[in-house]
Design a protein around this nucleic acid. Structure first.
Lengths: 198, 198
DNA sequence: GCCCTTAAGCAAACATCTGTGCTTACGATG
DNA sequence: CATCGTAAGCACAGATGTTTGCTTAAGGGC
C-alpha cells in the first residue's frame, strides 16, 4: 500500500503556522501549571519549529503583541447605542464578560506582558497602551459629536478600565450583578479632575 | 595607620549581600539601557557571586517580591490621622509617591506580572497583594471603631487601588498634583454598591 | 579564645534560550 | 505544466541562565 496519503503534509503553510502559534500562546497562558511561555515552549506546543517563530516574530513581546492585537480586534464589536452612557455600559459589559473567563483574564495579562519593559521606553509603553484604548476613544468622539461631554480619558482609565484590569490581573471576580452599570454610574456622576466640575 | 582596614573582608556578610543585591535590583530597574534584570546581571552589579542569590532567593520572582515588600514596609508607616479620609489620603499619597519613580513602577509591574513559573509563585503574588489589602483593612477597622462608615473593600479596590496599579503596570504618570485627594474624594462621595447608598 | 554553624565564593557541569546557514516543500504565477 | 520566490524545517553552534559540590571565611555561642 502507498503509505503516502495525498494530504501527508509534512510542512505547515505560513498561515497554519501563524494560527497554530497563536493558539499555543493562548493555551500556554491559560495552562494551570504555570507554563513558561518561552519561544521554544510555544513552538513545541504548536508543533512548529522554533526557528519559524524567531524569524517571523523576532521576540516574545512582539509575538504577544500580535496575538493580543488580533484577539482584541476580533472581539471588540463596539456597540453604538446612541448615548454615552449606553456605549460605556456596553463596553463595560463586554469587558466584565471577558474577565469572567480565564482566557479573557489571561489576555489582559498578555497585554501587560507585551509592553516594552525597559525603563527608557516609558513613553513607548504608554503609546502601546493607548492603541489598546482605541475603542474608548471612538466612544468619546461620538459622544462629543452628539454634543455630550464625556469624561476625560484619564478618568475613564481610573474608574472604568483600571478596576477591570486589576481584577483580571489578580484574578478577582467582579460582583455577580450590576457591575457594569455600577462602574459607569460612578464614572458619570463623580467629580472629574480638580477644577473641572463642582 | 593600620593599613589593614578592619573591613578588609574578602567575603561579604549575609547582610551585606542582601543589601547590595536589593540595591542592584533598584539600580538595574532604572538603568537606561533596558537592563535585563537577570540573576547573573544583578549579581555582577552587586559585586556578589550569583550562586549566593540563587541559593538565598531561589528565583528572580521571589527576589523581586522581597525587594518590593521591603520597600513598601519601609515607606508605608500607615499613618493614623484620626479620620477615615485622612488615613485613606495618607495611604494614597504613599502609593502615588511609590509609582512616581520609574523604578517604583517597574518594581510593582515586575511583581504583578511575574509569571507563575513555579506553582508557589501564585501564592507569592497573592500574598503580596494581601499585604497591601491588609493595611487597608486596618484603616477600615479603625474607622468603624470610631463610628465612621468606610466603603466596602471592593469599592476601595476599584477606586483607590486599581488606578494606582494600572498606572504602575502600564507606565502612566499620575496627575502632577492633587491625585491622592482626587481618588479619595471620588471614593468617599460616590455611590457604593447597588443598594448600600442612596 | 575555641569551636561550630552558616552562608559566601569558586569552578565546572548542565540545561535552556537564541541565532545562523542550508535544504527543500509549498503555493503562486505565467 | 514548468519555474520561482517564500518561508518551514533541520542541524548545529554560540551565548546565557541555572544548578551542584566543595572549600573556607565570618560571626555567634560556649
Amino acid at each position: 500500500m502507498t503509505s503516502k496519503q495525498p494530504t501527508a503534509r509534512i510542512r505547515k503553510s505560513p498561515e497554519q503556522v501563524r494560527s497554530a502559534v497563536h493558539q499555543a500562546v493562548i493555551d500556554l497562558l491559560s495552562a494551570p501549571d504555570g507554563a513558561e511561555l518561552t519561544i521554544p515552549a510555544i513552538a513545541q506546543h504548536a508543533g512548529v519549529n522554533h526557528t519559524s517563530i524567531y524569524r517571523r516574530w523576532g521576540s516574545r513581546e512582539a509575538l504577544l503583541a500580535d496575538v493580543v492585537t488580533t484577539r482584541l480586534e476580533r472581539d471588540s464589536p463596539l456597540a453604538d447605542t446612541g448615548t454615552l452612557r449606553g456605549d460605556l455600559t456596553a463596553w463595560a459589559e463586554a469587558g466584565v464578560a471577558s474577565i469572567r473567563t480565564p482566557e479573557g483574564r489571561l489576555l489582559v495579562r498578555a497585554v501587560a506582558l507585551s509592553m516594552p519593559s525597559s525603563a527608557d521606553m516609558q513613553t513607548e509603553r504608554a503609546q502601546h497602551f493607548r492603541r489598546r484604548l482605541h475603542s474608548i476613544e471612538r466612544i468619546r468622539e461620538r459622544a462629543t459629536a452628539r454634543g455630550e461631554h464625556p469624561p476625560p480619558l484619564e478618568q475613564i482609565l481610573d474608574q472604568l478600565i483600571a478596576p477591570l484590569y486589576l481584577r483580571a490581573i489578580f484574578g478577582i471576580d467582579p460582583p455577580a450583578t450590576g457591575y457594569p452599570e455600577l462602574l459607569v454610574d460612578r464614572l458619570l456622576t463623580s467629580t472629574g479632575a480638580p477644577g473641572t466640575a463642582r
